[in-house]
Design a binder for these strands. Structure first.
Lengths: 115, 115
DNA sequence: ACACTATATAATCATATGCTTATATAAGCA
DNA sequence: TGCTTATATAAGCATATGATTATATAGTGT
């Protein structure tokens, strides 16, 4: 890993504050391996749809994730063009995989795959 | 760098929330290279003493820093015995050095060195 | 065009956060 | 012992945050 990408302090604290919420942190870890749409997050976190939307908006506002419409769903994915993407990845790499959450969704037949 | 130290999600978000404050994040970066006492932080951040104390308490409550009395001052330092010390370090390593803050202190003759 | 589904936004509210002022504690020193 | 300095704690307050419910927007399919 290369830790030489220096992140300005103000930006770093802004990013860390965003990641300092368990829901958003889990979202980011999930997005590291799976693009997800809003309704999947709603299922995974057992949280209201607006609550999910608002978390995603915060992540999008600073450019950590991007959205893309696929059919009737809007999928979110990690924005690897973000200037501080390496910083974010290095944090996420310390977290345990959350694939179980997606696997559970699939088991329930709730995983969206629109292709 | 070894990113294999896995930090449980709840703990990670708790740590990131603490670091998601510009004052505390700068404190931690400073402590990476210099032990500091409370009054030095007060000078550096131009912030009230209770405000500084409260930030330090939050960092201490989760064990990220430890305190040690030296003469009439209480010095804070990074707790490198913390279970998630590697995680914290890997974050701090992305931040620009803040030594200028301490150098300025010294220039003003306000650096405490009690030995 | 109409109904249905997915998502976003707005308004509201309870709780959390970070600061301030006032006060307590505790060590150093005359 | 009493004064001074360094730090911690308590109380109060303004703002931020994260949730909820209600509503708007925008595709999809009939």
């Amino acid at each position: 890993m290369n830790e030489s990408e220096v992140v300005e302090l103000h930006k770093a604290s802004q990013i860390l504050k965003l990641l300092g919420d368990k829901t958003r942190l889990t979202m980011m870890k999930l997005l590291q391996t799976h693009d997800c749409c809003v309704c999947e997050f709603v299922e995974i976190f057992k949280m209201s749809q607006p609550a999910i939307s608002q978390h995603l908006r915060k992540l999008r506002d600073v450019g950590l994730v991007k959205e893309e419409r696929r059919g009737q769903w809007i999928f979110y994915s990690i924005n690897n063009e973000h200037e501080d993407y390496p910083f974010v990845q290095s944090i996420l790499n310390h977290l345990p995989e959350q694939n179980g959450l997606v696997v559970d969704l699939e088991a329930q037949g709730l995983r969206i795959s629109c292709n």
